[in-house]
C-alpha cells in the first residue's frame, strides 16, 4: 500500500475514533439530561418522551399525575412536573412505565388521570413510529428487568431492537423504522396488548392506593357516529376487569364539529385555545 493511502487510512481511523467517543459521550449526556438537548432544538420526538420519563423520576410532592396521548397534550400541555402528557404511540405500556416511576417518586400521589381518545387508546405495538415513541425512550436496562413476555415476545421478533437499550443507538439517525409486522388494528378496537397493559396499570394503581381515572379528550362528531359511540370497545370490556374503568370513560367523550379538527384526531390549536376550559370540564364531568 502506498504511503499516502496508509496515511489517509490512519487519518480516517483517528477521526472515526474521535467521532465515536464524542458521539457516545454526548449521547449519554443527552439521554440522562434530555432538557439540555431539547433546549438546543434537538428535533427528534423520542427525546421529548425521555423528558417525561426523567420528570416522572424526579422526587416531588404532587397529588395528581396527568398522562395521556397527544390530544390530551393539546388540552394540558407538558409542564415537566406532573403533567406528563405524551402521545398515543407510547402505548398503555409506556403510560404504565411513567406511572410506575411517578408512584416511586411523587410524594402524596392520589390520582392518576390517563387521557386518551378511543381511536388511540387501543394501539398495538406495530405502529410505524414505535421505534421513536416507545423503543428509543423506554427501552433501558432498568425497564427490561420487569419486562414480561408480552414485551419480550415482541422484542424477540425483531432482536435488533435490543440494541436500542444503549443510548448512542437511540441517537443514531434512524427513525420511522417499519415495525408493522402485524395487521394494523381497527380504530374502534382495543388490542390485546393494550388490554393487558391497561389491566397492569389498574392493578399497579390499586396496589399503591392511587385512584386511576381513564378519560377521553373530545372527538369529532363524524368519528363518534362512524364507530357508533365505540360500541365495539364497550363490548370488549363488558364483564372484564376493565369495565369499571371504562364505564365513566365513555361518558367523558364529548364531541365537537369536525371542521375544527386539524387531522383525524387533533384539534386546531386556535380552537383549543378558545375552548380549553370547556373541553376539560366536559371531559372530567363524570368524575365529579
Amino acid at each position: 500500500m502506498d504511503k499516502d493511502m496508509t496515511r489517509f487510512l490512519l487519518w480516517v481511523a483517528k477521526a472515526a475514533l474521535v467521532i465515536f467517543i464524542a458521539f457516545v459521550a454526548l449521547s449519554w449526556v443527552g439521554y440522562r439530561r434530555p432538557g439540555l438537548f431539547v433546549g438546543l432544538g434537538y428535533p427528534k420526538v423520542w427525546l421529548n418522551v425521555v423528558e417525561r420519563i426523567r420528570a416522572a423520576e424526579k422526587d416531588q410532592v404532587a397529588d395528581t399525575l396527568f398522562i395521556g396521548d397527544s390530544v390530551s397534550g393539546q388540552l394540558m400541555p407538558l409542564d415537566h412536573r406532573h403533567v406528563l402528557t405524551s402521545n398515543g404511540s407510547v402505548y398503555a405500556i409506556g403510560q404504565y412505565l411513567l406511572t410506575k416511576r411517578a408512584i416511586a417518586h411523587f410524594k402524596g400521589l392520589k390520582v392518576v388521570l390517563f387521557m386518551s381518545v378511543p381511536n388511540v387508546i387501543g394501539h398495538k405495538f406495530e405502529r410505524r413510529n414505535t421505534l421513536d415513541n416507545f423503543v428509543k425512550p423506554f427501552l433501558s436496562d432498568e425497564d427490561l428487568e420487569w419486562a414480561d413476555s408480552t414485551l419480550t415476545d415482541k422484542l424477540d421478533s425483531t432482536p435488533s431492537l435490543y440494541w436500542y437499550v444503549l443510548p448512542p443507538m437511540k441517537f443514531l439517525p434512524i427513525s420511522e423504522r417499519n415495525l408493522e409486522n402485524g395487521v394494523y388494528k381497527r380504530p374502534d378496537e382495543l388490542s390485546e396488548w393494550a388490554i393487558h397493559w391497561l389491566v397492569e396499570l389498574k392493578r399497579l394503581c390499586a396496589s399503591n392506593s392511587v385512584r386511576l381515572i381513564l378519560a377521553s379528550p373530545p372527538v369529532g362528531t363524524a368519528a363518534m357516529e362512524k364507530y357508533n359511540g365505540w360500541a365495539h370497545i364497550r363490548e370488549q370490556v363488558a364483564g372484564t376487569e376493565l369495565e369499571g374503568l371504562f364505564e365513566p370513560y365513555f361518558r367523558s367523550i364529548a364531541t365537537y364539529p369536525d371542521d375544527e379538527l386539524e387531522d383525524a384526531v387533533h384539534w386546531k390549536q386556535d380552537f383549543v385555545e378558545r375552548k380549553r376550559p370547556e373541553m376539560i370540564a366536559r371531559m372530567l364531568a363524570p368524575f365529579k
Binding site: 474521535v18 467521532i19 464524542a22 458521539f23 454526548l26 438537548f37 432544538g41 434537538y42 428535533p43 441517537f171 439517525p173 434512524i174 427513525s175
Partner: peptide, 13 residues
Amino acid sequence: FAILMVILFYGEF
C-alpha cells in the same frame, strides 16, 4: 468535527 456533530444530531435522515 462540530459540523459533523450538527449533521448527526440535527440532520434529517
